[in-house]
Design a protein around this nucleic acid. Structure first.
Length: 474
DNA sequence: ATGTCC
């Protein structure tokens, strides 16, 4: 199916509403970044999402949009809670609260260079990763899990895994409110007990990076960043626990569609009204899984701190921790009225503008750090939220896949990729050759083009560009 | 993304 696009202005395309769409689609992109050019079905998914009950303004797609489960990855959809608006697990994603944490090291790349080998060896030996496997913090049982699911990163800090200042630099201070562990199933809890503090696999990683360009000195300084500085970027989520929560609630909602009179073009959009038992149950379970993901990143950051202390005698200050797979109840102005919305961001990053009340005080003038990981061979970006973002304060979350994992495996060999990266001065500590090949830089869109489009579309603006020095791959 | 099919 060919989706007609109207170029409203550079970096912004509209898909006109036609039945059964309730709102138009809006795709932020350049011609090169449009998924039609890359042969995936993401634009059909943008259209499908536009049919959801209660959706307002538009079904949005970020410049890194690509095909996903039901909703596109890089999609943003807000539904009106008080007008029959729905919540859909597919609009959050299987990896609930998957997100990025950036830490700024008290060392620059030149003095770190002679110590990099040892640092990477320690990280490679101590960061749990890969399918299954264990985590850094084995919980005592379901009772302790319940506390972690409510407390998130703060619960980890209370138990000595980090410092209180970390929470100042976490979205929602490290815990999404409304977590209800009673709707996290037994199997989800079991899967999660031994995975707190682990990367997982796929596109997850821990990278040592360096700032190679600063676009805005003042904002970078407020974020604690300067040219040449070493950073650590962590990308991971809620592991088997979040996956199980998503699957469990998709099944329930799929069975309740008829009862709520919801008709969908794709069963993967399974949903329920926010104000319904299945809707509320999922939101409570999703918040709990989100808090698991946030605690997970807190534990991994602590492991990175230990490695830096040992190998480099340097500390790591948290710049920010932000999720890009969530649904949050937020207040936004729509058609001149303040409305309570359920904002689904799936592969899309919250991007609060300067002055937003949810920002920590010392970032009020700078805006929220928007963390945009590239690939292991290319740059990553630190951006900041801007005023006038009509996609409910959302921005891109990464480069966005263009090759399927299968295509990547046909084109790339893991050992060869490792050699290529090492020859470019990037140290690699893989978890599997196959996993490495699937995540080859060529499998992704051009991150610099994605960042330019994100800025051009008025979603966020660049603050600093980071380049990889070493990657610990999930 | 995911004990890559309970």
């Amino acid at each position: 199916m060919d989706i007609p696009l109207v170029e409203e202005r550079p970096f912004r395309y509209r898909i006109d509403r036609r039945d059964p769409m309730r709102v138009p689609g809006v795709v932020f992109a350049t011609p090169e970044l449009l998924p039609q050019a890359t042969g995936d079905k993401a634009l059909e998914q943008v259209v499908n999402v536009a049919t959801l009950p209660g959706i307002v303004r538009a079904s949005f797609a970020m410049p890194d949009v690509h095909w996903g489960y039901g909703f596109p990855i890089g999609g943003v959809a807000a539904t009106d809670v008080d007008a029959g608006g729905v919540i859909s697990p597919g609009g959050v994603g299987f990896d609930i609260s998957c997100g990025v944490r950036l830490l700024a090291a008290g060392i620059d790349r030149e003095p770190l260079a002679p110590k990099m080998r040892r640092l990477m060896d320690i990280l490679g030996d101590t960061i749990p990763r890969g399918m299954g496997r264990g985590g850094l913090w084995k919980l005592s049982g379901p009772a302790q899990m319940e506390d972690l699911l409510v407390g998130g990163a703060g619960y980890a800090v209370e138990h000595g895994h980090g410092v209180p200042r970390d929470l100042d630099r976490c979205e929602d201070r490290g815990a999404l409110p409304g977590a209800d562990p009673s709707h996290v199933g037994r199997r989800a809890v079991e899967r999660g007990l031994e995975q707190v503090g682990s990367l997982g696999s796929g596109n997850h990683f821990l990278e040592v990076q360096a700032v190679d360009r600063v676009y805005d000195e003042d904002t970078a300084a407020r974020f604690g960043l300067h040219d040449g500085q070493v950073c650590v970027m962590i990308h991971c989520g809620s592991r088997g626990l979040g996956h199980q929560v998503c699957g469990d609630h998709v099944r329930v909602m799929d069975q309740s569609l008829r009862a709520y009179g919801i008709r969908l073009p794709d069963r993967q959009l399974a949903c329920a009204p926010v104000v319904s038992p299945p809707g509320r149950d999922y939101l409570g379970a999703m918040a709990a899984a989100a808090n698991y993901g946030r605690a997970n990143r807190q534990l991994l950051a602590e492991a990175a701190r230990r490695a830096f202390a040992t190998a480099a005698g340097a500390g790591l200050d948290l710049v920010y921790d932000v999720s890009h797979n969530t649904a949050k109840i937020e207040t936004h102005e729509v058609d001149g009225a303040r409305r309570s919305l359920c904002v689904h961001r799936k592969g899309a990053t919250l991007a609060l503008p300067p002055g937003h009340p949810d920002l920590p005080r010392d970032l009020a003038g700078a805006g929220q750090p928007v963390l945009v990981p590239g690939t292991m061979g290319t740059a990553s970006y630190v951006m900041t939220g801007t005023a006038g973002n009509d996609a409910f304060a959302s921005a891109c979350h990464g480069a966005g896949r263009v090759w399927s994992r299968h295509q990547a495996l046909r084109r790339v060999r893991g050992e060869q990729l490792r050699d290529d990266l090492e020859s470019h001065g990037i140290a690699v500590r893989p978890s599997s050759w196959r996993g490495l090949a699937e995540e080859a830089p060529g499998a992704y869109k051009d991150i610099d083009a994605v960042a330019r489009a994100t800025e051009g579309a008025g979603l966020a603006r660049p603050v600093a560009r980071l380049v990889p020095l070493g990657v610990v791959k999930g």
